[in-house]
């Protein structure tokens, strides 16, 4: 079997923690979601650019 095929069907690494076992990819996604949530609360939103409206 080709190397890329072998990698494509191999299982992810798992982190056992007592009764909880989670794969590294799933853990990364969960941490990214939490990080995005926190960043969305604290990062300031860009200020509105007030441009004059053209009235035809």
């Amino acid at each position: 079997m080709l190397l890329w095929q072998d990698e494509a069907v191999s299982t992810a690494s798992y982190l056992p923690w007592g009764w909880l076992s989670i794969s590294v990819p799933n853990l990364i996604v969960i941490l990214v979601m939490i990080a995005l949530f926190v960043l969305a609360l604290v990062v300031p939103f860009p200020k509105e650019r007030r441009t004059p409206r053209k009235h035809s």
Binding site: F37, L39, A40, L41, F45
Partner: peptide, 8 residues
């Protein structure tokens, strides 16, 4: 609404 949490 001008907050990143409203973007998702």
């Amino acid at each position: 609404v001008a907050s990143w949490i409203y973007v998702f």
